[in-house]
Amino acid sequence: MSNYGEQEIFHYLDQEMTPEQTKAFELALKNDPELKSALEAAQKSHQYFNQNNLEKAPEVLTDQVIQKITASSNKKYYRHYGLFSSTTFLLISGVLTALVAFLSLISSDYIDWSAVSPGIPEGSMSYTDNLFRGFVSRKVINSSMLVIYGILALVLLDRFVLNPLFRGKMKQLGYH
């Protein structure tokens, strides 16, 4: 293949040769069938790629990308606020449970009030002196109701405060 190699063939195809170099190359082509066939092979792949350098993306691609981004943002929100709600719920219900348990202990007379009432003889402690006595069952019920109200308050907080806040933020960010 004359003085020209494949490197020169690609230079010729990419029009990177000077006019003099091009002239000399084209002259060599006329006298060198091997160079000519090498050029034709390279020319074919060059032409095929040039004419088909871009594929058409599916029409739904953009929508699907935006959907994926929006979905991942939603997940982030739910992770963040879900964690906040769960922690709050656990804290409140923990405190309320402790309170209910404490009141139950009092009602069962497990607490020795004489121990915390110095100066009063053990024998003089009567049921009537115990202020909690008689109200126990109502207190337990009240405390249980408090737990239920707490849960309800959390649900309402999420429904009427956090959710509208989230929706407003989404609109502000331009999400659909």
Partner: peptide, 13 residues
Amino acid sequence: RTLVERYQDYVYT
């Protein structure tokens, strides 16, 4: 969305 529409053919290719 505009950026995706602009380059989707290139990225897909």
